[in-house]
């Protein structure tokens, strides 16, 4: 079985993100592996370790070699970089056809990637890629068990609700969290992988899709994060808090 893991680099929201003319200053933006993709990779490697599979890490050329080298150090069997001119701010919808073609060319049975990325305002990569491939999608995955012919995916829906769903391959899975935190790659293993991992190149014929949505401008949130002090009198403060709870649906509704 071939598991293709799509790895994307995204601006790190833990860092300062600078804006230039109402859009992200991509030259300044610190790019890192999308956290959810990190979990997707871990889950793919776990699935492989349990049931045997070939894990192929796939990334756009612009993501840089380091991401793929790390993936190899983490247990990916192959590392493939997709050769295509892609603007850094291309949306998930735009790149989905490229990923879909690459997945086909790599003989994927299962495509795994993060359930979302921090900037995908026009939709996520996993469902767009599934749609391109016309394969079923399982999002919100928290575990993939590949020991049976039809793998079983654990999906979580919040509020403690979850389900085990079997899927006929081929399929796309959007991973929310691996069963365990992504494994640690020590500095020495990383240094080794940087020297020895070979990265394959893959050309695709597909073109970027059009993105029907349009980004007008990016800005910092308007709302202030500064604290609002409630009344010092407990009776009044309690009333105010209950009102806040009401507004946010924390009390008084069957929120899932």
């Amino acid at each position: 079985m071939n598991i293709v893991v799509i790895l994307q680099t995204v601006p790190d929201s833990a860092e300062e993100l600078t804006l230039a003319d109402g859009v992200l200053d991509w030259d300044e933006a610190p790019l890192r592996l999308n956290e959810f993709d990190d979990h997707a990779l871990e889950e793919a490697v776990l699935a492989k370790e349990e049931a045997g599979a070939t894990v192929i890490a796939l990334a756009l050329e612009s993501a840089g070699d380091r991401v793929l080298q790390t993936a190899v150090a983490r247990g990916a069997d192959r590392a493939v970089k997709l050769i295509k001119e892609v603007p850094l701010d291309a949306s998930a919808r735009m790149v989905a056809p490229l990923m879909a073609e690459a997945a086909r060319k790599l003989g994927a049975d299962l495509v795994v990637t993060g359930v979302q990325a921090p900037g995908d305002i026009f939709g996520q990569l996993a469902p767009f890629t599934a749609a391109e491939l016309a394969w079923p999608l399982l999002g919100g995955a928290v575990g993939i068990d590949c020991s049976a012919d039809a793998p079983i995916v654990a999906q979580e829906f919040g509020g403690g609700r979850s389900a085990q769903i079997s899927v006929t391959l081929p399929a796309v899975v959007g991973v929310q969290a691996a069963r365990r935190p992504p494994r640690y790659v020590s500095g020495s293993k990383l240094r080794q992988a940087v020297q020895s991992a070979s990265i394959e190149k893959l050309d695709v014929a597909a073109e970027l899709a059009d993105e029907p949505g349009k980004l007008v401008t990016l800005h910092s949130p308007h709302k202030t994060t500064a604290i609002s002090f409630l009344d010092d009198d407990p009776v009044t403060a309690v009333d105010q808090i209950v009102e806040i709870f009401r507004q946010r649906g924390i009390v008084g509704g069957g929120r899932g």
């Binding site: 020590s186 500095g187 020495s188 293993k189 990383l190 240094r191």
Partner: peptide
């Protein structure tokens, strides 16, 4: 015990 990272 993270020797590689120390070196980096």
């Amino acid at each position: 015990g993270e020797e590689g990272l120390f070196q980096d």
